[in-house]
Simulated assay, not measured.
Amino acid sequence: MLDPALFDWAPEISRHWSDIREEALAIYRDVEAIPPLRRISPDHRRIASDDRWRSFFLLGYGHEVPANIARARRTYELVKRIPKLNSAFFSILAPGAHIVRHRGVTKGFFTAHLGLVVPEDSENCTIQVNDQDLHWKAGEWTMFDDTCEHEVWNNTDQPRIILLCQVGRPLRWPASWVATAFMLYIKHSPFVREARHELRSWDDAFRVAEDNERV
């Protein structure tokens, strides 16, 4: 686990968590038009076997998603203050969701979760990092090394919504150079190009859902 107090930007953003939550809930109204992560990211198909893990991307591997940013302007204004921000998205776990045990591919960044909507039965909504069980709290950060093995369960009857950020880790040279080169490769890789294409197609579905709300 990482201590959020080590990062200047963490308390500033968490102070405005209710603003972020408000935007996330407005987006959640059209949850069926939010893409399941396994549909847009080939790398996640091995750890998410169904559509109960959905992700609304504002930034993915350094690529902005302008249409989504327009729907969550305050959130993006806040997360852009994070140095070395790699990805930022609303991560939604439906009731009964399970993300199997896995680990990230590089120590170049760490993962930060800001709790937005947490089930009342929070003890049954769990992320296990190595052998430590953690539970999200609204308005608070949960941070960890993405290369540690982790697994997630939502064994409740309510959704869990967080703001998930992948953040570049402070590293010394030459490790910093290696991490930068690796992330640059990922940013321009075929799998990221495919994900961006899928996101554009899902935006059409989200626009239709928004139009239906206005009818």
Rank of each mutant, 00 (worst) to 15 (best):
L2Y: 13
D3Q: 05
W9D: 08
P11V: 01
I13D: 09
S14I: 05
S14K: 07
S18N: 12
S18R: 14
D19Q: 11
D19A: 07
D19V: 08
R21F: 02
E22K: 14
E23V: 00
E23H: 01
L25D: 09
Y28F: 15
E32Q: 15
E32N: 13
P35H: 06
P36H: 00
P36A: 02
P36M: 00
S41P: 05
S41Q: 13
P42N: 10
D43K: 13
D43C: 02
R45K: 15
R46T: 14
I47Q: 11
I47D: 14
A48V: 14
D51Y: 01
W53F: 10
R54N: 12
F56G: 03
F57N: 05
L58K: 04
G60A: 09
G62N: 12
G62A: 06
E64L: 10
E64G: 04
P66H: 10
P66K: 09
A67L: 09
N68T: 11
I69Y: 09
R74T: 15
T75D: 01
T75V: 00
R81I: 06
I82Q: 08
K84C: 08
F90Y: 15
S91Y: 04
S91C: 06
I92S: 03
I92G: 01
L93K: 00
A94T: 05
P95A: 06
G96R: 12
A97M: 10
H98C: 04
H98K: 11
H98M: 05
I99K: 01
I99Q: 12
V100H: 07
H102L: 09
R103P: 09
V105T: 11
F109I: 01
F110K: 08
H113M: 09
L114Y: 07
G115L: 00
L116E: 13
V117T: 11
P119H: 03
P119A: 02
P119Y: 04
E123P: 00
C125E: 09
T126N: 03
I127E: 14
N130P: 02
Q132E: 15
Q132P: 03
A138Q: 14
G139I: 10
T142C: 08
T147M: 08
T147D: 04
E149V: 06
E149I: 05
W153P: 14
N155L: 09
N155Y: 06
T156H: 08
R160Q: 07
I162T: 12
I162K: 02
I162M: 03
Q166E: 15
G168R: 05
A175H: 08
S176N: 07
A179I: 12
A179G: 13
A179H: 08
A179K: 07
M183R: 07
I186A: 09
V192L: 07
R193H: 14
E194W: 10
E194I: 02
E194P: 01
E194M: 12
R196F: 09
L199T: 02
W202D: 14
D204H: 13
D204C: 03
A205E: 15
R207I: 06
V208R: 14
V208P: 02
E210G: 01
D211I: 05
E213N: 12
E213F: 01
V215P: 03
